[in-house]
Amino acid sequence: MSTTVLDRPQASSKPTTAPLLRDGRTSIYQPEQPGLIFPEKPVFEDVAAERQHLKERLVAACRAFALEGFDYGFAGHLTVRDPEHPELYWTNPMAVHFAQVKVSNLILADHKGRVVQGRHAINRAGFVLHAAVHEAHPDILAMCHAHTTYGTAFAALGRPLEPISQDAAAFFEDHVVIKDEAGQVAVEEKAGMAVCDWFKDVKAAIHQNHGLLTASRHSIEAAAFWFIALERCCKQQLLVEATGHKPMLVSPERSRYSREHVGSEYIGWLHFQAIYEHIAETQPDMFR
């Protein structure tokens, strides 16, 4: 098997940030030809503008999860760290469908699970898992978790994804399988502490008998897209294995090359821009 199931957190040999290209670009997908329309990360005049931007992207991520069918009652939580008060994070409100999340009903909470802004309650499981990771890893800006069909099914196997495709290679040596607290609902704070150390230098985790989690040191957009991608990869691997035939795997060298060029935080952010523009145009109520 090409990716190791870790029984305890280990340091990754993967670089934490993608190296710049010789011409200063972050990615080969950025156009070399000047003057073309292409998404660029915004520059903010003040922290209020940056906060509004983050909240709108968090709402869009929730709406994207609704479009993907990731809803399961009140389960599922997405978080992004506040730009001015990094000890606080914005998250979706408890018992509100992903499709009904909007800027006005987001809540701001601290690492103790106390809501400091907003009218809704916080999801206890979301606080336990996300707050522990945010507090233990100051570099992690955003996290996503939902109870999805294929991710939950694949998590029952207790093993990592194999690089069966270019898409799956984006997670090669960049995800872990967590066995701690497997299958037990995370409502006790000790459960969050058992999980948080696993997120060192990886963007995704498969929690055995539970489901998928993603974390980003770049943006909520990257965390959301890589969650969508991870669910898709779990579905694809389950479909391949259902044929009864052993898949041909991408070699470790080619998997690392693909991960570097199509599995970076920046690429996750870039993928999400198309999703954001579609949702912002078709669901303007998100801004209310």
Rank of each mutant, 00 (worst) to 15 (best):
A168H: 11
G211R: 00
G244H: 00
H77P: 07
P42T: 08
V101G: 01
T26Q: 10
T149R: 07
P83V: 08
E277D: 10
R81C: 07
G151P: 03
H130F: 00
A224Q: 08
S165I: 15
V128M: 05
Y72F: 08
Y266P: 03
P34L: 13
V133H: 05
V177A: 01
H145P: 00
P93I: 09
V176D: 14
R51C: 06
I267Y: 06
T17V: 15
K179G: 02
E135Y: 06
G183C: 09
P252E: 05
A224E: 10
K190M: 09
N123G: 09
E188F: 15
I28W: 10
H85D: 04
S13Y: 04
F225T: 00
L58K: 10
L6A: 11
L129S: 10
A224G: 02
N123A: 04
E135D: 07
V128K: 13
T79M: 02
M193S: 12
H175P: 01
P83C: 10
E231R: 05
Y89R: 02
R81V: 15
Q166K: 08
L58W: 11
T148G: 02
L21E: 03
V43K: 15
F44M: 03
M193Q: 15
Y89N: 01
R119C: 12
F171T: 12
G76T: 08
G211A: 14
A194G: 07
P9K: 02
F171N: 14
Q52D: 14
C62Y: 12
D7C: 07
E135F: 12
T26I: 14
D82R: 10
R124S: 07
I140P: 03
P83R: 09
K41A: 13
L108A: 05
T16Q: 04
A75C: 04
L129A: 04
T4F: 01
E231Y: 05
L212V: 14
D201H: 07
G76R: 11
D285M: 12
Y89L: 10
L239A: 12
L212W: 13
G158E: 00
